[in-house]
Design a protein around this nucleic acid. Structure first.
Lengths: 244, 244
DNA sequence: CACAAAAAGTTCTATATAGAACTAGTTGAC
DNA sequence: GTCAACTAGTTCTATATAGAACTTTTTGTG
């Protein structure tokens, strides 16, 4: 029961420091669903007992997961999964319109194994990819047309999953089904006339002004594991970013 | 010589933990230019001697600044400024064009004590404000027309400072002259036709498409101390944001 | 039963210490 | 002069400990 170290056998176990191995173990157990939300994770004392490490080392590992947005610690009560991790950070992407309460609808319009264009392949480190096309709308208005590229080595099978199993948010799915945790991302916002194909999807005239958001998403170790580009009609677009 | 605590007198000194106060002090000294790039900051030992704190506490403060991207530590050799810190955080605002190496030129075109419009007054908590208009250009092309609002209670006198004393970057000035440290900000990017007055400054036709960036900047304790809106020609605009 | 007080359990701050890992410069042997 | 060995200085990992701060549960009192 106690030691999980053996049962997990992380790939990253080349005599890394103890706090990193513990962090990886905890992250893996979180991703595997060992703890439900609103149930406390083992306390510092329990973990020191389980692992044989000291409090400082355990705290260091847990603090990393807090910094990465996976956990949340509440003084006096315990350590928990961070429920709003995804809405708050990765999903603020779309504070479009005025109400950011309702989650946009999401519809997949294409999924296929394809070879990625050079630019995408360079970012992801491979051309062997899966391409997903998705439309996002709110109250029956299309707000965004997305094109998403994923490396097949990590996401094989996502192209045939039943659409019903794919929620409006992809990052939780990545974690649940493919054990990929998106820790950070870089967004690039610019404006350009909409290409005809995209304009049609958005229901705007060809060459009408459109906002373009390019995103590269990374795991905790800095590997790029997703690239996407989204187009939206510029008059309804709003991008919010919290700095510092 | 030793203790800097007195000489700086941070606004955020409501008996915060020691490591946070040290972090703030170090951040302020970095922003003030106390250390040149490629010169090591005081070592852990020196700082423990200066501050009377323990190594662990000093390390905690420095680690925060590393996480925030301000510092860089090299085992065996020392702690240094991270060269691209300013571009990357406060100044990444304008990764316009392709080269982010050259700092844009900056020209003040108006400064006055005025009463702020309701919306701005609500954010800043007062209508008694200073309004600054600024044009930013790169290689003789105007990229951005800014309008900046500051509460007079904190920034009194900035409207009459000689322009020669005002560099291209305002946040270091805020810190140097007014002891205001910008700790975070929220940017809001959208897209709208340029009003005639602004279009004229940008050298584009009236009602031509323009990018609009609204920023609210905060001190460490969460008080809004600056509000600005910037317009730029949409075809040259690019906004980069690092999430997570 | 209601409510206050106490207790137990949790995270958080801070100190002190030891040695490992790494870097850069100095010394010494040849 | 060259190069290896040494040394001093730095950050990094890890442990052990103490009490503060906060939350939740239990206990005791009326």
């Amino acid at each position: 029961m106690a030691h999980q170290d053996q049962t997990i056998s992380r790939a990253t176990d080349k005599r890394l420091p103890a706090y990193l191995r513990l962090r990886d173990d905890l992250a893996a157990r979180v991703a595997r669903g060992d703890w439900a939300p609103d149930v406390a994770l083992p306390s510092e004392n329990q973990l020191t007992a389980e692992t044989g490490l000291s409090v400082g080392t355990v705290r260091k590992a847990m603090q990393m997961l807090v910094d990465e947005g996976l956990l949340e610690r509440r003084q006096g009560s315990g350590t928990f999964l961070r429920k709003r991790a995804f809405d708050a950070t990765l999903f603020r992407f779309f504070a479009m319109g005025t109400d950011s309460k309702t989650i946009p609808q999401s519809r997949l319009v294409a999924r296929a194994v394809t070879s990625a264009p050079p630019r995408v392949a360079a970012v992801l480190g491979t051309g062997d990819c899966i391409r997903i096309e998705r439309l996002r709308s709110q109250s029956d208005t299309v707000l965004l047309a997305e094109e998403i590229w994923l490396p097949r080595v990590r996401f094989d099978g996502i192209e045939t999953m039943p659409e019903a199993n794919i929620g409006p948010l992809l990052y939780p799915l990545y974690l649940d089904r493919f054990n990929v945790f998106i820790a950070s991302a870089v967004d690039d916002v610019s404006f350009a006339p909409a290409p005809a194909a995209i304009a049609a999807r958005l229901g705007i005239p060809a060459d009408a002004p459109a906002a373009v958001i390019e995103r590269t998403a990374f795991t905790a170790d800095g590997t790029a594991v997703e690239w996407r580009v989204a187009h939206g009609p510029s008059d309804r677009f709003r991008y919010r970013s919290r700095l510092g």
